[in-house]
């Protein structure tokens, strides 16, 4: 049995954590739009980048809808949100590993290729030196690596914490009598809706059943 947090940062109600988690995640997921905007400048995307950016844009839509109803949540919407957020967390871990490999490979190329900007520009120290010990003013390779890893791991840790907060919030919604859902009513309402709306509601219902099974 997993014990989810009962409050946000040990002091605030869970819905505040959900509001902050969704807001921060929406900001970060906007990268999907800018990644795809890069196509206009003639930049090609590989398969993993396409996948990351498309997932980001879908996530922005789902999280934005959830954020608008954080004070008056609907259980179906939040079931979908928590499932998307959890899958997104798993994908984020995978993408972090994948793109870490990409960066360190690109960095190795930048540092060793004689035609790279790093080698072409020469040392800026020689251009601006004023007789001080300038080497100590720049971070060592070890420090650069340490801070890169530290920030990446901190970002992932927060991501996991936010995921637990949203899971805890949805679990509490399931256990609250006010938010009980009758799926038959929802299906009745779907008859005159568009295909997209039916698809959306079906996704919500599937997520609701999963959440009910694992969280309620």
């Amino acid at each position: 049995m997993v014990h989810f947090p009962k409050s946000f940062l040990g002091a605030f109600p869970l819905y505040i954590g959900v509001e902050i988690a969704l807001g921060i995640t929406i900001f970060n997921k906007c990268s999907g739009f800018y990644g795809i905007l890069g196509l206009i400048t003639g930049h090609d995307l590989d398969l993993m980048q396409w996948l990351l950016y498309v997932v980001s844009i879908i996530a922005v839509i789902v999280y934005s809808l959830a954020l608008t109803q954080v004070y008056k949540p609907q259980l179906l919407m939040y079931s979908l949100t928590v499932v998307v957020f959890t899958i997104d967390t798993a994908l984020t871990c995978f993408f972090t590993l994948w793109f870490s490999g990409q960066w360190f490979s690109a960095k190795h190329h930048e540092m060793t290729d004689p035609s790279s900007q790093t080698h072409q520009s020469g040392s800026p120290e020689s251009k601006y030196a004023r007789g001080e010990n300038l080497a100590s003013q720049s971070a060592s390779q070890t420090a650069e690596f340490f801070f890169t890893m530290l920030v990446t791991l901190l970002a992932l840790s927060w991501r996991f914490y936010f995921n637990f907060i949203i899971l805890a919030f949805v679990q509490r919604l399931f256990r609250h009598p006010k938010y009980m859902v009758d799926l038959n009513d929802v299906e009745q309402d779907l008859k005159n809706k568009s295909q997209l709306a039916k698809c959306w509601y079906k996704s919500e219902c599937i997520c609701y059943k999963w959440c009910k099974h694992y969280l309620a």
Partner: peptide
């Protein structure tokens, strides 16, 4: 404190899949 040069482009690639600022 010492200036970092690689941390930000590294994190941009690792977390957002590319040097977005570069390509834009």
């Amino acid at each position: 404190p010492p200036i970092t040069v690689q941390v930000l482009p590294a994190i941009e690639t690792i977390l957002y899949g590319d040097n977005l600022s570069d390509i834009l």
